[in-house]
């Protein structure tokens, strides 16, 4: 008998514990079961760390040019990844470039996500002619290559951080609109919505209380899957001489500047590219994991 008491207590304890198990705990226990998800999450954390604390951890000033130290190969004079044609430390510039990529990826996803969600809700909830007009518009835009669209818009409205975000968002909102619309259409048919309508709940209340919360998951999944696309698109456009302009260090314009030295100094075109690949890989792996976890129906698609 004496031994059963602690055992009972233990059982009770574990029940309480499991009830108190927070969402964050659940997130990490799910994450720990997928090594690709963990890898993606780790890369994203590293990126966020670099983009927040970048200025304090760069070994050199990323903007400081010193012509006598131009084109030093990696591991010379304390330059881990070498220097560029102006003698700027490439490692420091890559760290600062992380901030540009993170800002562009997240800002674009937010703007494109908000616009696309609003359009998707209007089209899916109100149906009728407004749905037809909006979705035709989406179809039309989707029948033009994304990267060319962003390039042309950015070249015309002018380069720069703010304008590349605007250009990417103009190119990106349509996917959100289409996905959110189909989610809203599916939700409208669900019993809890039809019964709310039957009991006379107002349209606005249904939208805010029932539809919007249920759109949160698809929006997050889609945004996380799109961020990688935005980061690669920005790098491509900055590489073509638009987008983020020098001397601001962005991985795309570093590759553009390094291009002229490809025959003599390989490190200029190698390391910023590796940074892009690791970033896009991390974001995509995390996005895939998030989709598989939050929306198991889509798994494997």
């Amino acid at each position: 008998m004496a031994s059963s008491l602690p055992q009972g207590e233990q059982a009770l304890g574990s029940v309480l514990k499991s009830k108190q198990k927070t969402k964050i705990g659940e997130f990490f226990s799910n994450l720990s079961r997928s090594w690709t998800g963990m890898l993606g999450f780790g890369i994203i954390m590293l990126l966020l760390f670099l983009s927040i604390f970048g200025p304090w951890i760069t070994p050199y000033d990323p903007m400081h040019a010193e012509f006598s130290k131009g084109l030093l190969p990696p591991l010379t004079d304390g330059h881990l990844l070498g220097t560029d044609h102006l003698g700027r430390d490439i490692f420091s510039r890559i760290i600062m470039g992380a901030r540009v990529s993170v800002i562009i990826g997240i800002a674009t996803a937010c703007i494109a996500g908000v616009i696309g969600t609003i359009v998707g809700i209007i089209a899916g909830y109100f149906r009728g002619w407004i749905d037809i007009v909006l979705m035709r518009l989406v179809d039309v835009q989707l029948s033009f290559p994304f990267i060319v669209l962003v390039l042309v818009i950015n070249a015309i409205i002018g380069a720069g951080l703010r304008n590349i975000i605007i250009s990417l968002a103009i190119g990106g909102w349509v996917i959100f609109a289409r996905v959110i619309r189909s989610e809203v259409l599916a939700l409208r048919e669900k019993e809890f919505i039809t019964s709310s309508i039957a009991t006379g709940v107002s349209r606005l209340q249904i939208l805010v209380k029932h539809i919007l919360p249920n759109l949160f998951t698809p929006i997050i999944i889609l945004a996380s899957l799109q961020i990688g696309t935005y980061i690669i698109a920005e790098a491509s456009i900055s590489f073509l001489g638009f987008g983020v302009q020098p001397p601001t260090p962005a991985w795309g314009n570093m590759l553009n500047e390094g291009r002229d030295y490809i025959f003599s100094s390989w490190w200029l075109v190698t390391f910023p590219g590796i940074a892009i690949v690791i970033t896009a890989l991390g974001v995509n792996l995390f996005g895939d994991w998030l989709r598989d976890t939050l929306d198991p129906e889509l798994k494997g698609e």
Binding site: G228, A235, S236, L255, R259, I262, I276, V277, A280
Partner: peptide
């Protein structure tokens, strides 16, 4: 396919130029 989607085509082009031309 996962890695392939993370490699920007312009960078792959640069690497090929570096390897085969330079």
């Amino acid at each position: 396919t996962v890695v392939g989607q993370a490699v920007p085509s312009f960078w792959l082009g640069l690497i090929l130029i570096f390897l085969f031309a330079a």
